[in-house]
Design a binder for these strands. Structure first.
Lengths: 351, 351
DNA sequence: CAAATGTATGAAATCGGTTTCAATAATAAT
DNA sequence: ATTATTATTGAAACCGATTTCATACATTTG
């Protein structure tokens, strides 16, 4: 267990001042090239490593970004995180990641941790339970940029990064209608969250625009889990008349619903057409392949960090905080296609 | 943008010394109960937050655990991370996560970052390219515990956390043999990594123990991606004679292989029985459902952090560094079952 | 040749907690 | 009444890098 080398040790070794050593290691122009050389050699030889705390304490910033996610354990979130890590790492930032497990209590604790860890910026996707943004206020008050992504909420001084959930849902629902569905069930999550309320709106508007009636009884709200999908399928089977289309707010739930319906002898898409959301791997595996909305998770993560980096560097003074929309698209697969022209059916645009 | 409150501000406000304030905030026993009360009230009122750098700088530890993963973006890794985050968070630790993207260069950079960030402990799953552990030596030399999980390597002073890959592969292969397969292809990843070389061994041993010949030409090494699965399927289709069983080292690749074979008119499991590895969601969705090895990712993450916490607290002086084996199990599903007794077929033990 | 400019370095203050060592006051024991 | 013990508080050093301000010397410029 070696003792740590500091710039003082190096300074003593080379008969220089700590000042010069510090400057040399930071490639400060006011240090002689040869001196720099000697110092960096000594540093390497002696096994020096910078003490980030001392540095952070003095510089008052941490090169760390805090990320709060509902759960780490979802295909969508992992691609978001993957994108975030990549961009952050390239820019020399570390990521501190914590999950709220969909509870407000944990989210508050996470926010507090980020606050105390003095992260330079925060990226948040809200839990199911969150109703207001009070627990982020102390962070915001310190001038630390907070960006919401995916599950967002309005805040006068925060940017949100989203896809156009309303439009995506509108398209998915319209597609089902075009395939001849007239009685469509919509399965979605907690309407406190924009993603779900917007999708519900999109669903509604599509019905209205196609002169179909909207009926509350066709809306099922659950946690969009695998089990919830089975449960929903059972409810659907018990409906009279049975719906002829289902639009689900994520693929996990859509797929388990589809499987359960199939097991019960329902033919998909003939009896019931189904569309999901996210374009998870399972949507390309289930039979029939699931029509879904491609949600660019990796890209969302990358954009979120890029915008955050800009805000942290103060480059964007002029631009007021706002909402950034990423493009999403409907990927039509067999689970929803009823038209006779089977071979014109569009293929997945993603591998 | 408020100015930060320090213990000095609180001390001045209450006419106390910073010492007492510091102690009170850390619930030190030598501070009067009433004084503590006053201080914590003042702290709350004034919006105080501890400066972790100052604290870490003095205390010489960070309450931070560094995690290096090959990719964030995989179902298995996200469950591992989910488990890690949960346990770490409960113990008051933060997670710094970075991905090597399967390259040695990135892994070295990540290790360096962890080193400089002065994490209290490190959890590593190795990249494809890694051939030795030199880049972790500087961390280890400082007495910082390093634990390898999943993709591990031997190091005299590091613990490894794994499943018994050899045995799992042995079981999977034996199962295929018991289902009547006599010519089994094994698709796996880079043999530098224990997980893949051990699985290959398990496959070999199973053949030997069942008096089946081993043939190099039945081994396919690739990166286990979706595309690699399709490619492998094409090779299999071109083999003469065609194999009657395939054991793949992950589900992603197994499923895409299965799909491609099916599209080519091969009947699974009748013509070719297939088994995968990991028990990802897709294994329960593909038709026929995929026989696979349940890999307890979440549990592995939890155990890894628990062991790390023990090592960091020095509780385990006595126990030499070693290997911890987690239980895995073969989950038999339709993709491999040929026996007539269809109804005795075991069901998945996981939902 | 004097003044101005540029180059290279260092002393000392600073960031904000933690901790050691001492001091004081209050209480208990002899 | 005196000494020992306990409870409570504070002064000052410390963790290690950064940064402001000064200084010394070398080189130009007028």
């Amino acid at each position: 267990m070696e003792k740590d080398i500091t710039i003082y040790d190096i300074a003593r070794e080379l008969n220089l001042s700590p000042t010069t050593v510090s400057r040399a290691l930071n490639d400060h122009p006011a240090v002689n090239q040869k001196t720099k050389q000697r110092i960096s050699e000594a540093a390497a030889r002696m096994g020096y490593r910078s003490n980030l705390f001392a540095s952070n304490l003095r510089k008052q910033h941490t090169n760390t970004i805090g990320v709060i996610v509902p759960r780490l354990n979802s295909p969508f979130m992992s691609s978001v995180l993957s994108g975030m890590e990549k961009v952050a790492n390239d820019a020399g930032y570390n990521l501190i990641i914590s999950q709220s497990l969909e509870t407000l209590q944990k989210e508050i604790a996470n926010a507090k941790t980020m606050f105390n860890s003095r992260v330079d910026g925060v990226l948040v996707s809200l839990s199911y339970e969150t109703e207001n943004l009070d627990h982020f206020q102390s962070i915001i008050n310190k001038g630390i940029p907070v960006i919401f992504y995916d599950r967002v909420a309005e805040h006068p001084s925060c940017t949100s990064i989203v896809i156009d959930n309303l439009q995506a849902a509108y398209q998915a629902t319209s597609h089902l209608i075009e395939q001849g569905c007239t009685n469509i069930v919509h399965i979605t999550g907690n309407l406190n969250r924009n993603v779900y309320s917007d999708r519900l709106k999109g669903y509604k508007y599509a019905l209205v625009d196609h002169d179909l009636p909207y009926d509350d009884r066709n809306i099922m709200i659950n946690n969009l889990s695998e089990e919830a999908g089975e449960e929903a399928a059972r409810k659907i089977l018990a409906m009279n008349p049975m719906p002829d289309g289902v639009f689900v707010s994520n693929d996990t739930c859509a797929v388990s619903c589809l499987k359960t319906l199939k097991q019960a002898g329902v033919s998909v898409p003939k009896d019931i057409a189904i569309a999901g959301f996210n374009n998870d791997a399972i949507s390309r595996v289930v039979e029939p392949n699931l029509t879904t909305v491609n949600y660019p998770g990796q890209e969302m993560g990358e954009v979120a960090v890029r915008v955050l980096l800009m805000q942290m560097s103060g480059t964007v003074e002029g631009i007021p905080s706002n909402t950034i929309n990423l493009r999403s698209e409907l990927i039509i697969r067999e689970s929803s296609v009823r038209s006779k022209v089977g071979n014109t059916k569009k293929k997945a645009v993603l591998s």
